[in-house]
């Protein structure tokens, strides 16, 4: 296995996440999850709805901080440093660990300004550099040809698939080391989906990618390793091929053979 040689990028240890919704008792969304994410691999996360995949993803770049009532325990080591530690630079973390949400959320600004948003937020003011970053990000997200003549048009005029690629370009423009994608193709047609998967293959050259997906086929196509979540537990994680041919756990087998979920 060539993947075994890759160094560790993120190491998650004893991760527990709790939610408290308005005066009700706390519910545990993740239970003692331990997982290692390797440098420049594509890790797919699968599992039935509500099992905690999105929660896990949001912990990795501390977007769970924005959820009122959420509590996180454990350690998430990004290149050895605990990102959950008190006083950790969250803004800096999110620059290194980018995120693409399930539903594309372009800002009501021009296409150019959308892609330049993160770069500008980081304080970059050099016009030429901004233009270079925007163009390269749009190119990498396979959107450049479709929008190069209308960069000043509103991003809200894009189709769903284009908007999703715009959000990917927006995340890429800040040149993150890790990209978290939460069901990025759930709103896309088969052609746009195929393109996005192709894009993931290309991005792997310089990025670590964690992708949540409900499509087993997609996980099999794009990832080197796959993790299976079930009711807040990480049941199994391993090389994708092995997961889909001879899973170690019965639950995994039941799930991938469509017996529930």
């Amino acid at each position: 296995m060539p993947t075994a040689a890759l160094p560790t990028k993120i190491e998650v240890q004893n991760l527990n996440v709790f939610y408290r919704a308005e005066k009700k008792a706390e519910t545990q969304a993740l239970k003692d999850v331990a997982l290692e994410i390797r440098d420049r691999e594509v890790l797919a996360l699968i599992g039935p709805s509500g099992c905690g995949k999105s929660t896990f993803l949001r912990v990795l770049n501390r977007m769970n901080d924005t959820v009122p009532g959420a509590r996180v325990e454990g350690r998430v080591l990004l290149e050895g440093e605990d990102v959950l530690a008190k006083g950790y630079d969250v803004v800096g973390l999110r620059r290194r660990v980018g995120m693409v949400f399930q539903r594309p959320q372009p800002f009501p600004k021009s296409i150019f300004d959308n892609v330049a948003f993160g770069v500008r937020a980081h304080g970059l003011t050099d016009k030429n550099e901004i233009v270079r970053r925007v163009e390269s990000a749009l190119g990498r997200a396979a959107l450049w040809d479709e929008v190069k003549d209308r960069l000043e048009a509103s991003a809200l005029s894009l189709s769903g698939g284009q908007a999703q690629r715009l959000c990917i370009a927006r995340a890429l423009a800040v040149e993150p080391e890790v990209l978290l994608m939460d069901e990025p193709t759930s709103a896309l047609d088969p052609i746009a989906t195929a393109r996005l998967e192709e894009l993931i293959h290309e991005l792997r050259a310089d990025l670590t990618i964690v992708i949540v997906t409900h499509s087993m086929q997609q996980a099999a196509r794009v990832s080197q390793r796959t993790g299976f979540f079930y009711m807040g537990n990480l049941i199994e994680v391993g090389p994708t091929k092995q997961m889909f041919t001879r899973p170690r756990e019965n639950k995994t087998e039941d799930y991938i053979s469509g017996r529930f979920g």
Binding site: G92, G98, M99, F101, F117, A121, R170
Partner: peptide, 21 residues
């Protein structure tokens, strides 16, 4: 929508930058 703010924060914008922009 909270998702606007989230999208901005996830890009590494500060809270203040998100509010203003």
């Amino acid at each position: 929508p909270k998702s606007f703010a989230d999208a901005s924060l996830a890009l590494g914008a500060t809270r203040m930058y998100t509010i203003v922009n």
